[in-house]
Nucleic acid binder design. Structure first.
Ligand code: MN
Ligand code: MN
Ligand code: ZN
Ligand code: ZN
Lengths: 133, 133
DNA sequence: AAATTAAATGAGAATGGTTATCATTCCGAT
DNA sequence: ATCGGAATGATAACCATTCTCATTTAATTT
């Protein structure tokens, strides 16, 4: 059980060849554009299967789930509330302190999700530009 | 504009009188049980309005949005993947380091969301009990 | 190679949380 | 009392995701 079919391979290749954080619909559309159209249900099932196999990683944002390559070290995300850009960062001290906080509550931590919201450098720069006019 | 109507007051009172993290449907059902039934659409609008007014706070979990009292100091959450319990914690160092990480990327942070997943003390205890049998 | 069997696919229906519509009701200000 | 902007509630619509099911694909066994 759990085959790496042509469709799943196509999804995996797409994700591995980029640094983006894809949602199911984007994967579906991009594959269609490339001529290897894959049914949307299959995309959802494929993404789930690939994640279970540890071949892709995901972040659950408010509305949609997004997938990215799994061959990067663990990191968290900052999301620009203005342009939607997703930046990555990792801070080992934060990770350590999370563990500490969990321990303190007798909580057996198995994972976490940290997302920072705000304006990315580019958006901040642009609005500053505009202010100068 | 933005009135504190009877319905919204009822929602607010309900949330303020508890330490729970309510979703819209729970609020709707609880108010109905108490005889002050409020339409589900009104509950959604009310919760949004109350949050905009700073009278309640919210956390966006994977599936649903949950609301809680706003009169507590900022905190983050640990969610038990076994029983669904939501525990709260706050760690000023984590908060500070988040700011630092944002600064490093030229990111103008306006908010964040940190959720730890795992098993709460009670669930860990229970499975240990069971192991002893 | 043919048959067997389990898993995967895809089209479309269904689900579930949330938002939009719209006629009606409420309420504050003139 | 009247007017006009908000709020309400029933319901439809939305949208991401999952489910159903007939069909296809592909390993495994004869
Ligand atoms: Mn990432
Ligand atoms: Mn809380
Ligand atoms: Zn931006
Ligand atoms: Zn628990």
């Amino acid at each position: 059980m759990k085959r790496l079919t042509t469709q799943r391979q196509a999804i995996l290749d797409l994700i591995n060849a980029s640094n983006r954080h894809w949602d199911a619909e984007e994967v579906n559309r991009e594959l269609a554009d490339r001529g290897h159209s894959v049914g949307i249900a299959t995309v959802y099932r494929g993404l789930t299967a690939l994640e279970e196999a540890g071949l892709v990683a995901s972040i659950q944002l408010a509305d949609r789930k997004r997938y990215e390559r799994a061959d990067k070290q663990h990191h968290d995300h900052m999301i620009c509330t203005e342009c939607g850009a997703i930046e990555e960062f990792s801070h080992h001290k934060i990770e350590a302190l999370q563990e500490a906080a969990a321990l303190e509550k007798g909580f057996e931590m198995s994972g976490h999700q940290l997302v920072l919201f705000g304006r990315c450098a580019r958006c901040v720069g642009e609005s500053t530009e505009r202010g100068k006019l």
